[in-house]
């Protein structure tokens, strides 16, 4: 990213911060052609942009952190490749630690090796990527946790130049792995999930009733609960009343059936925190390009 592109993107981010609206920044449902155009406009590697988009989820502050950490002229593709390797090998988070099969671990290591070489500019043959994907798919994935970890590294077994969404795909497999770990730890069964679903339906009905009653009461007292118009369910007033209904229901009906939802939500929050930190570290590790390239 050149200095001029960096300045232009930081201006766009500042505008989004001022307006409290991240719509100018791409997110998961932005059409691919618009994402590519954004990458070209701001001189960003597309695979790197996909990672930022996935982790930002509309948080302008994260965009600012990444762009400010990006050394002028640095190649985001290298950060994406290093992030893949980090997620595979990290001592705490690493998917590799969840894989017991030595052959599968070696195949995962091979993916990181190919990514490193490709990011360094080597022309890695299409057949090399395909071979490693086939090796990863051809062995029994083992339990749900290991299978999801393998799915994660297989998701990254693509040339990021021709499949720029591959690094971001890893995040979905990572999430599935964390869900599998929660399920394993809680000995979660289909019966428990079914009971949890029923409980959720009752909780939602109770929360809706609470919110509807709050709206009625507020209107009777002359309060405009939807000053900006639109469906009542989308207003902060309704949302707050609904959330209070949920909290009241849980307080009145404590149950272990809520554990799976609580722990998976916590795991996802933690995943985003770790993933963002991991990406920021890879960005900070990039070196500045020579001045002649930076100003180009």
């Amino acid at each position: 990213m050149s200095i001029a592109s960096r300045r232009a993107l930081l201006t766009l981010i500042a505008e989004a911060e001022r307006n409290g609206d991240a719509a100018a920044l791409p997110f998961y449902a932005t059409p691919a052609a618009e994402v590519s155009a954004f990458a070209a406009r701001y001189d960003l590697d597309l695979s790197f942009l996909n990672l930022i988009m996935t982790f930002a989820t509309g948080d302008v502050g994260f965009w600012r952190q990444v762009v400010e950490a990006l050394p002028p002229g640095a190649d985001g593709r290298i950060a994406a490749a290093r992030w893949i390797e980090w997620l595979w090998t990290d001592a705490e988070t690493g998917l590799r630690n969840r894989v017991g099969d030595a052959v599968l671990r070696a195949s995962g290591d091979r993916v990181c090796d190919l990514q490193r070489r490709a990011a360094a500019g080597e022309d890695v043959a299409r057949s090399d990527w395909r071979q490693v994907r086939i090796r990863l798919a051809s062995r029994d994935g083992g339990d749900d946790v290991q299978a999801a970890a393998i799915e994660g590294i297989a998701a990254a077994a693509w040339d990021l130049g021709s499949a720029p969404g591959a690094a971001a795909d890893m995040i979905y497999a990572w999430k599935a792995m964390l869900f599998a770990e929660v399920g394993r730890d809680l000995e979660w069964t289909a019966e428990k999930q079914s009971a949890a679903n029923e409980r959720f339906d009752r909780m939602a009905a109770s929360a809706r009733a609470n919110a509807d009653a709050a709206v009625q009461q507020a209107r009777a007292e002359g309060t405009d609960v939807a000053p900006e118009g639109g469906p009542i369910e989308t207003t902060p007033f309704y949302r707050d009343a609904y959330n209070k209904g949920v909290a009241d229901f849980i307080a009145a009906n404590p149950s272990d059936l809520d554990l799976y939802g609580q722990r998976t939500r916590a795991a996802v929050d933690n995943m985003y925190r770790l993933g963002r930190d991991g990406l920021l570290r890879q960005v900070a590790s990039l070196s500045t390009a020579p001045a002649s390239m930076v100003s180009a």
């Binding site: 395909r130 994907r133 086939i134 990863l136 798919a137 799915e151 297989a154 998701a155 077994a157 693509w158 499949a163 969404g165 591959a166 795909d169 979905y172 497999a173």
Partner: peptide, 14 residues
């Protein structure tokens, strides 16, 4: 539902 390209790729390769 949404799924990874690697899962689709594995099925397509098979």
């Amino acid at each position: 539902g949404s799924m990874s390209r690697s899962k689709l790729a594995a099925a397509l390769e098979a």
